[in-house]
Design a protein around this nucleic acid. Sequence first.
DNA 1: CTGAAAGCGCTTACAG
DNA 2: CTGAAAGCGCTTACAG
Lengths: 336, 336
Amino acid sequence: MGVSLRDVALLAGVSVKTVSNVVNGYAHVSPATRAKVERALSQLDYRPNLSARNLRLGRTGVIALALPELDAPYFAELSRFVIDAAAEQRWLVVIEQTDGSLRRERQVLDGVRDHRVDGVILSPVSIGAEELAARTDDAALVLLGERIYDGPADHVAIDNVRAARDVTEHLIGLGRRRIAALGAQDNSISGTAPLRLAGYAEAMAAHGLPQTIAEVERYRRAEGAAAMARLLAAPEAPDAVFCFNDLLALGAMRTILAAGLRVPEDVALAGLDDIEDGRYSTPTLTTVAPDKAQLARIAVDLLRARLDGRAAGPPREVRADYRLVVRESTAGRVRG
Amino acid sequence: MGVSLRDVALLAGVSVKTVSNVVNGYAHVSPATRAKVERALSQLDYRPNLSARNLRLGRTGVIALALPELDAPYFAELSRFVIDAAAEQRWLVVIEQTDGSLRRERQVLDGVRDHRVDGVILSPVSIGAEELAARTDDAALVLLGERIYDGPADHVAIDNVRAARDVTEHLIGLGRRRIAALGAQDNSISGTAPLRLAGYAEAMAAHGLPQTIAEVERYRRAEGAAAMARLLAAPEAPDAVFCFNDLLALGAMRTILAAGLRVPEDVALAGLDDIEDGRYSTPTLTTVAPDKAQLARIAVDLLRARLDGRAAGPPREVRADYRLVVRESTAGRVRG
DNA sequence: CTGAAAGCGCTTACAG
DNA sequence: CTGAAAGCGCTTACAG
């Protein structure tokens, strides 16, 4: 294959153990021996075989990041931070796309048992809390960004209810009264949709305002555009819409503008995720910005704690920060 | 660790070799033995230890996909297809972000020598053809989406010169005359910028039109917005702009609209990449759509051929398909 | 401070 | 058709 410890040991005239000691930076190696070994190491350009090390150590040095779809900007941006945070632990990150399907979410979890990855950071859509809680393997698992109740595993997310309430209050504060929620979902067991809907409903109820709810299957632009068309066709069209993510909002924006209406004059629009697209759309998009770097870092830290065996206790529940970012789609335009 | 072949063999009352034969689906196992083994297999819920198999086979079953940044939509969309194509080979894909830096591009290549991955699909920015050609390790490597001359490795990309010419011809055909190119780069050794610039220049020269060139450092929205502001401030503002990718175009669009000008009436705009954002912007964005699924599949196929040892010959150069997609940013709006 | 040896779990000639 | 055994390259008690 390549150069092995044995080759280096032979050349340096020492044992394999000694070479291993030097490679792994252990103390108690005499300077003379160390120098000899290091000369041989560089002469042969030795690189440890990670497969062998992993077999011996029972680790792969690889973690899986499982998310519905990599090409949704929110997940792509989040992945970037997860990969960076993992790199600091010298972990490689394998990306697995579940499409939100139960079968594939289960498959990802099995990857740990196949010794392909040491642990999994999962952004769950379909898998239920009971199933996760019933898992017998002790695979390191961190749930990211969705809310599964009863903590079957470590979990990090923003407070979705509060964030949704903040957005809705912002729209109400602008004087809007016919405020629709776009993005409710029927099929989501563990998703955020019910939480965001709850936050919206809380705020609307607190002000005695009627609720209008538009459902979608998936959080993509096309669905936002279609749902918005349905809202506009209704007898009482909304004067503001809180979309449950930015992609839905950008799709909705397209529909509104293409219909010859103005944003925000006719319809104010807010999203959630703070993807880059919304910072350059016209008008720019008001949104909730989760601290993605923080989310990623916490997820990696939680996983590391489990893998180190430092945390053997009950699942931990961590909240990440977010902030409301008001832009033109609700506040109106400023000519540049 | 877990259940090993030995455990299964003990329970089934056969040798390890026989269990291995069954697990790997080899022929010539008597039905009776096979049944016995399979019973033991499922009783113990055996899962092969991939680390051990990999050590033995000298393979990891993992490939690296190295690209500048995952959160650029083009790369996120491409990654999705690469992961899917790799999954069909039962490969896992580790994503590495180079930020276009030479150091990190080199690091990725070293990953093969560390036996962390079997091969690499690299979207190069900084690394030069000479350096790649000078590599002594025989790591499987496929170059994706950029043009490096003299084929130091297998390579797949669209014909960037021709695509750029097509876009420019389209703008000329619309009657535009002051057509600027936005996205030229100074620092790119291996990048596509010179190729796209060449295509633009060819078309402009063919029609005797003057060339205007705006440079950027990186292909992001912010840079497109800033470069467009510079173009608008010039004495002869352009009536059309060919941006070297869609992100630049979307940034430029923001600047034009924020300045109170119209797209395409005042300035027509075209990009390249066909990212989803451009299909929902207002106006929608004219662009070149590379066949991303095809690019990904070819890249994976090229890598597989190298790893199988089927292809030991000289590097292969493959062209992927693309098409010009005319939308509102050049053709004008249709009210919905 | 250093060495000889076992063993992680798998695959694969080599016998029979 | 099946088995006993070697070996992939590493780490780690166990001696000395």
